[in-house]
Nucleic acid binder design. Structure first.
Lengths: 251, 251
DNA sequence: CGTAAGATTGACTCTATTCAACCACGGTGG
DNA sequence: CCACCGTGGTTGAATAGAGTCAATCTTACG
């Protein structure tokens, strides 16, 4: 089991910021607009949206949201990848999910952030101050509706993951993980065969409820069976999708 | 591992129904009103709410919502207990959660119900037809805001449970389960020491990602250590809360 | 009272973990 | 340029925690 020595990676946060003054066009030109909740807001009201946001840039490893803290900010990911995680008192870690372009960070109880967030790659975030975000929600019912739909989706995704953690074998978990990655990649216009994994084996292990060693062993087993292939650990090719699917379903 | 033979318990559903005609007062007198999302709707508009709902009564074991089906109805629990679960192709089961008075059933993707729902006890449900519910949401922004808060909470609770499933030992899981039950009982005005468990050991096992045998062994171990006590399997007394808490945290 | 479903307990097995060694790669600095 | 180091990844051997199989007990109920 990977354990994290207490007091690691609590880096300051928020290296570079671009002010709000970039004009009305910023949100209209946003690379993430097509896939983010912001597209619930009409073109002609984007200036108001832009005024409520700040763009933040992060380097890999930066933690920008801390479990237990008061939720001052909400975020939309403009580019890059992020992981959400929880730490136990003794250092055990659970990775809750991996997020990318268009994903929203901000659900949870109103009093405390449910899990920490860390940049896996260089990341650009669109940051909302909580109060301003609330005003936006009240002003744009469409945005609220959209957000409810996203939260509702997330509930379902969470239930799916609980099933994986509670009832699947290591092989099944890894196979599902790879297939889910492929789907996510495809959804963003990427390849559904060649995957770039922005996370380490340790992240994957903590996400799947396994150890690094087990994840590694399953990867090599899948490679030996020629279901996948890879030269570096981070870029994997899915060679036999049906085979992976079979394994993911307990074949 | 408990496995479910395919085609079990797919009982018809919805035994008794009370029509919509019970008048304006029904929602005002509802036992669950204080703790359900309906309290986002003002007193003087309850008649409209009542017109959108049907009360349904179920016996233990009845499945009233099926994973994968189209979500025709949404529910609020008026009384009784319900479990949500998912089945794998080979019969493995994951119990996603246990719900009671005031809880809302209806999150998920718009196209398919994320998990099945079964009555654990006699249950009274308040049923919303999907279309009518949507109209309600559009009519009462407060209701929508409330629902977003509930969904957001549920996301956080799900993350908590993922951590349990991914990273806790059997003892920790059971201890946490009992403490969570105690809290839930207290929240509804019940005892936080004497618990009535509406679910079987098998349900608990599928909820905690364990087997019946392991759950049973942990229960007896906790009893031998005098952290809990019980005469029947279904009614447990928490004798040493701090002790349980210590175990739940890896003590 | 007899039956069936649920719960407990024991003996054994096995999957995934732990512990440990080793390898590969990328960046740094002499 | 290359040696060095650290991080991340792989692999092997031994271990343990939970699972499986099976027998027995308990309880609820017709």
């Amino acid at each position: 089991m990977t354990t994290v020595p207490p007091g690691t990676k609590a880096e300051p946060c928020a290296r570079i910021e671009r002010g709000q003054g970039c004009g009305v066009e910023r949100c209209g030109l946003c690379e993430a607009r097509a896939v983010s909740i912001c597209n619930a807001i009409e073109e002609d009201q984007l200036s108001e949206l832009a005024r409520a946001t700040t763009v933040v840039e992060l380097a890999p490893g930066e933690v920008f949201r801390n479990e237990g803290a008061s939720p001052e900010y909400l975020f939309n990911i403009i580019s890059g990848s992020v992981k959400l995680f929880k730490l136990l008192a003794d250092g055990r870690r659970a990775v809750i999910g991996f997020l990318t372009v268009g994903d929203f960070i901000g659900f949870g109880r109103p009093d405390a952030v449910p899990c920490s967030a860390e940049a896996l790659t260089n990341v650009r975030l669109c940051r909302f101050e909580r109060g301003k975000f609330r005003v936006l929600l009240e002003t744009y019912p469409k945005l609220e509706r959209r957000l409810l739909a996203v939260a509702s989706d997330e509930v379902a995704a969470g239930q799916e993951h609980m099933t994986l953690l509670g009832r699947l074998t290591a092989d099944e978990r890894v196979a599902r993980f790879l297939l889910a990655r492929a789907e996510a990649s495809q959804r963003l216009g990427g390849s559904s065969k060649d995957l770039e994994l922005p996370m380490t084996r340790s992240d994957i292990a903590d996400y799947l409820g396994l150890t690094i060693e087990t994840v590694s062993r399953v990867f090599t087993r899948l490679r030996r069976k020629e279901l996948i292939d890879y030269k570096t650990a981070r870029s994997v090719t899915l060679q036999d999708r049906p085979g992976l699917l079979a394994i993911s379903e307990g074949g």
